[in-house]
């Protein structure tokens, strides 16, 4: 869609979706794009589903309807599947493949699906799907907590949005606390490279 972009970011509480979307929004601002987003803050507890809707350019509604997301960024694979109906048929998906097992599963009250065949199927349904082990890359950068920024780097690397790498880097510098900047710049770069080499 030439006039605007709708990006849906999903994950689990504690994974840093809010920081992810703040940096993305700031990057859009750096590039001079109009931007609107909405976050559901919900409760302070961890472990629930968290989503953030980000729209750029000619879209005003900070909320994405079924079948309308141009880009899906999932910090957790089951959450990618749960949000698939929100995507357009031609959407790009960027998915971290490391599971975060829900408490209900740990308590034996639900089962976590066998991922490999499902992720394989996801690729056929959405041909523009990038799968990466966000946690491995984040750890390589220095902390598993930088998973959100790895995925941000992957989003930048996919070049699906009209935002330059420099805009993302500037946004990171604006939003991230100086003490964590180096770690996050490394994480960003690892995500960026991972997607480039997959292309």
């Amino acid at each position: 869609m030439a006039q605007g972009f709708r990006i849906l970011a999903v994950g689990v509480g504690g994974q840093g979706i809010l920081l992810f979307s703040r940096v993305l929004g700031e990057a859009a601002l750096v590039e001079g794009y109009a931007v609107a987003m909405s976050e559901v803050h919900g409760m302070a507890q961890r472990g629930g589903v968290v989503e953030s809707n980000i729209v750029l350019g000619e879209v005003r509604s900070p909320y994405i309807s079924p079948g309308e997301a141009d880009v899906l960024v999932a910090l957790e694979p089951v959450e990618a599947l749960r949000a698939l109906f929100r995507c357009r048929k031609e959407a790009t998906a960027i998915v971290s493949t490391d599971p975060v097992v829900p408490q209900m599963v740990k308590d034996g009250l639900a089962t976590y699906p066998d991922l490999p065949p499902l992720l394989e199927k996801l690729r056929t349904v959405l041909p523009r799907t990038y799968l990466l082990s966000g946690e491995d890359l984040a750890r390589k950068a220095g902390s598993a907590k930088a998973l959100n920024v790895v995925l941000l780097g992957a989003l930048a690397g996919s070049k699906v949005l009209p935002l330059s790498k420099e805009a993302f880097l500037e946004a990171l510098r604006r939003v991230v606390k100086p003490a964590y900047l180096d770690l996050n710049l490394r994480a960003f770069d690892l995500g960026y490279q991972a997607v480039l080499s997959a292309q």
Partner: peptide
């Protein structure tokens, strides 16, 4: 309304209510 990708192949996913 816009069409979305086929989701019929997705099994029942484990719920993820917030927990203590």
């Amino acid at each position: 309304p816009p069409e979305f990708p086929d989701t019929s192949w997705i099994p029942e996913l484990p719920p993820r209510p917030p927990t203590l």
